[in-house]
Design a protein around this nucleic acid. Structure first.
Lengths: 100, 100
DNA sequence: ACCATAGGCAAGTGAACGCTTGCCTATCAA
DNA sequence: TTGATAGGCAAGCGTTCACTTGCCTATGGT
């Protein structure tokens, strides 16, 4: 899954999607589409965004839940920690207060 | 430069090069080549490795210094911090002891 | 001066990637 | 039931990417 994590981060549009989900998690595909268009002037097709979300989900950065005809996309930043753990050897969340 | 950082991390061979430089910084092109071949069974041409190093340097992840006919490649992990800072909102090195 | 070593430049190739277009399914409101 | 909304699948297209090959420059040992 590490491979897919780095691949997911490689695209600027996907990183912007992560930014949007950071600001408000649990958005639908159409919400993300319109935000990309409005706030970032990214006029990309709905399918394009959908494919990006699939890549992000494969990387574990986005988790989805279905409710009726809506599919909500939630952000999961946990996989990002392995990046700094790999080359910085540190826990990005900082020292554990219980075991300092 | 952020764009080049994520692009640099997208390739598995480049990530392995970072691993090798983490283990021992300041290696030459040929040293890196032979290590990739020996330790990781990656038989990639010298030019291929050279191009990877160029991408890593453009991302600021490796810095080079010339000495005679040798060019040493040093690891610089600093750019990695912006990744977790962007979506985790944390400093990977932990809280600053001066300003906690 | 010679030749091996360390590295660089540039063109070419095949595969992967981002994105679009067209059509199809499912859920909800009227 | 009809129509609108939310989303999915798959083929096609142009670009980027990783990698190779061939040739060239520069430094150092003998």
């Amino acid at each position: 899954m590490a491979d897919e994590l780095y691949k997911a981060l490689a695209d600027p549009t996907r990183r912007t999607i992560l930014d949007e989900l950071t600001e408000q998690s649990g958005q639908t595909l159409f919400e993300i589409c319109s935000r990309l268009a409005m706030k970032h002037r990214l006029d990309i097709s709905r399918q394009g965004v959908s494919q990006h979300l699939a890549v992000l989900e494969a990387a574990g950065l986005v988790e989805t839940r279905r409710e009726g005809r809506y599919k909500f996309h939630d952000l999961n930043t946990a996989p990002l920690r392995q990046i700094t753990e790999r080359w910085l050897g540190t826990d990005p969340s900082g020292p554990d207060k219980e075991n300092p």
